[in-house]
Amino acid sequence: MPARSNEPPFWGLFGFGGMVIAFAFPALLICMIIAGFGDGHTTFHFTEAMSHWWGAGAIFLIIFGAAFHGVHRIYHSFHDLKIHTGRVHHIILYGTAFCITTAALTAISIYYFKSFQ
C-alpha cells in the first residue's frame, strides 16, 4: 500500500489561514499604523481585546492560521526557487508554525486567566 500524503490537513490549514489573513490583516495593520502615528492620542487596545474570551480566541485563531498559511506557502515556493524540499524543510517550517501556535496559546492563556485575579 502506498504511503498516504500528509498534504490534506496542511492544505486545510493553509486555506483557513488564507481566509483569516484576508479578513483580518488589512484592518489589523491599519489600526496598528494609525496607533503608531498617533502619539498617545489613539491607543492600540490589544490587551483589552485579549482580556475577553472572544478577543483572546480571535487573536489565537489569527496567529495560528497566519503561521500555518505562511509556512505552507513558503514550503511550496521553495520548488519555484529551485530548492528541492525534503523532510528537513518540512519539519523546520511546520515546526516553526507549531512553535508559534503553542507560544501564542500559552501567552494568551496566561494573560487571560491572570486578568481574572
Binding site: F25, G70, A103
Partner: peptide, 15 residues
C-alpha cells in the same frame, strides 16, 4: 506569505 508570517510573529510578540 513571508510578510504574513512576520505579522503573525509580531502579534505573538504582543501576546
Amino acid at each position: 506569505a513571508v510578510l504574513n508570517l512576520i505579522v503573525s510573529i509580531e502579534l505573538l510578540v504582543f501576546c
